[in-house]
Simulated assay, not measured.
Amino acid sequence: MTMSRGPASPAGQHPGPDGAAHRPAGDPADELARLGRSWTWLLGSAVATLVPGILILVWPDATLHVVAVIIGLYLLAAGTFRFVAVFAREGHERLAGLLVAVLFVLAGVLSLRNPLQTIAALSLITGAVWLVSGILSLYTAISAKDLPHRGVVAVVAVLAIAAGIVVLAMPTESARALTRLLGLWLVLLGLAEVGLALAWRSALRKALPRGPGAPGTSA
């Protein structure tokens, strides 16, 4: 999951501790943009990735139906987080983010459909989503020169690309092995996104005004 280009807010507006600029209430787009810039939103996305991976790893004998539901709900949740984050972006980054969000939601719906509940189909869907989203995130990390912690974003993107390639290339003879592989990559991606959220929090805190009367300082 990529971040907005920078923690800077429009003139006269200072970001809060969660990275959200204080704007007049009432505009849904502004509210979604404020939420999408929040480091806690990135952390929520990381948790939505990490928890399904842990469930799959600690429940290796779960039925295929259960695994499909876990993967499907993960993809739907990830798509929702990415959709909100789109409002914190600008220009071509917004379009790329929207495409990724739609891709995650569609993949989640497909994963929850009974006719597609085979481990091979789940691996194909999840691997393709990781590969495409990783490529788009890597493009953002390279092209957005003013993106805070570009290196962290690039690492997460490369990890997603690697996850997609490995899952797509894995032989399908062993459903148990593929299930554990999906769980392992979910955990790794979740931990990487936790690191991304913490890096974003650090960037936001550095952007906070430091002076008399500024939030978090004494007059």
Score class of each variant (00 low, 15 high):
M3G: 11
I125M: 09
G183E: 06
H149P: 05
V102M: 14
W200Y: 08
E93K: 13
P115D: 08
I165V: 14
L42S: 08
L106A: 13
L64R: 02
G213E: 15
P60S: 07
A29N: 11
V158P: 03
P209C: 07
G53S: 07
P212K: 11
V86H: 00
V187I: 15
W39D: 02
A62P: 11
L76F: 09
D18P: 04
V166R: 07
L184M: 15
L191I: 10
E173H: 12
H65N: 05
L181Y: 02
A154W: 12
H92P: 10
L188K: 01
S45N: 04
I135L: 15
L204K: 01
P24D: 14
G16N: 11
V69H: 01
L73C: 13
P7I: 05
G79V: 00
A207T: 04
A46F: 04
G183H: 04
P15N: 09
L75D: 02
S133D: 09
A11W: 09
F104I: 00
T172Y: 13
L182V: 06
R113F: 07
L196S: 14
W185V: 06
I125Q: 09
I119Q: 03
H149K: 13
L32T: 00
Y74R: 05
P52F: 01
W185G: 00
G26C: 12
L103P: 05
L178W: 00
L186W: 03
S143N: 10
G134Q: 03
A62D: 13
V100R: 00
K145A: 15
E90V: 03
Q13S: 13
A169N: 07
G53T: 07
P171G: 12
S143R: 11
V194E: 03
A107M: 12
K145N: 13
I165N: 01
V153S: 08
R201Y: 08
L112Q: 11
I135W: 09
L147A: 11
W39K: 01
T2I: 15
A11H: 11
L43K: 01
V132W: 05
W39Q: 02
A8E: 15
S45Q: 05
H14N: 13
L76Y: 08
L73G: 06
L57W: 05
G19D: 11
T63S: 15
W200L: 04
T172P: 08
A25C: 13
G44W: 06
A199N: 09
D27N: 14
V105M: 09
A25I: 04
T2N: 15
